[in-house]
């Protein structure tokens, strides 16, 4: 169940860095987008982006990953025996 580094980068590191950077850059700005404070418009855009990033990781790396279910079944069986 060790994730690939590429999966961690796409699903966690890139969106995480983007989120923090965006808040730091836009948080103090008086700029508005369609009347909405820029930092809030940015956060709203991040909602679907975060889902998209995880979905890409899922499709490319994690859908067919080894979830070690056989390993768990084996030990659970021991504990219930």
């Amino acid at each position: 169940m060790i994730p690939r580094m590429a999966s961690v980068t796409i699903a966690l590191i890139v969106p995480g860095v983007l989120l923090i950077t965006g808040i730091l850059l836009l948080g103090s700005s008086p700029a508005k987008f369609l009347g909405i404070p820029a930092v809030l418009a940015f956060m709203f855009a991040m909602f679907p982006f975060m889902s998209l990033a995880m979905w890409i990781s899922w499709r490319l790396f994690d859908k067919d990953a080894d979830y070690q279910l056989d390993d768990v079944d084996e030990q659970t069986g021991e504990m219930h025996s």
Binding site: A11, L12, G16, L40, M43, M46, M50, M54, S57
Partner: peptide, 20 residues
């Protein structure tokens, strides 16, 4: 927005952490 940004931000970033 100070309140809303940390409130929405920690939940949003929590999901990819939960993914792994």
């Amino acid at each position: 927005v100070m309140y809303s940004v940390w409130f929405m931000g920690y939940i949003l970033l929590g999901y990819p952490i939960g993914y792994f």
